[in-house]
């Protein structure tokens, strides 16, 4: 087991299920480089008709927001309901609005 610690970097895998839809995160895998990661992604995440395109990005390169700051970043919509169309009362006689 001499090479066990020689760990390949981790990659995040994104799959476009069909043209017209956005790529969606499906999971991760280990690979030496991007080419290999994309090829392995086919075998690991697309064994059925799951996709037509794959993106891979090194997990270490992804910058994520801090879960501890969730509240200040994504303040609940409770205080900003006026951003939704349902906030405005329009008489039912008014059509096409």
């Amino acid at each position: 087991m001499t090479d066990n610690r020689m760990e390949w970097p981790l990659w995040e895998v994104f799959v476009r299920s069909r043209n017209g839809l956005a790529h969606r995160h499906v999971g991760s895998l280990h690979a030496v480089d991007g080419t290999m990661a994309a090829e392995l992604a086919r075998d690991v995440y697309c064994r059925r008709a799951e996709g037509v395109s794959v993106w891979v990005a090194r997990s270490a390169d992804i910058v994520a927001s801090d879960p501890a700051r969730k509240d200040e970043l994504f303040e609940p919509m409770v205080s900003k309901v006026y951003r939704h169309p349902t906030f405005y009362e329009i008489p039912s006689d008014v059509k096409n609005i």
């Binding site: 087991m1 001499t2 090479d3 020689m6 030496v32 480089d33 290999m36």
Partner: peptide
């Protein structure tokens, strides 16, 4: 796992070379 060691080593060496 032991039989696959050379594959893992070769892949790492190839990536390093590239």
């Amino acid at each position: 796992h032991a039989d696959g060691a050379w594959v893992r080593e070769a892949a790492a060496a190839h990536a390093a070379k590239r």
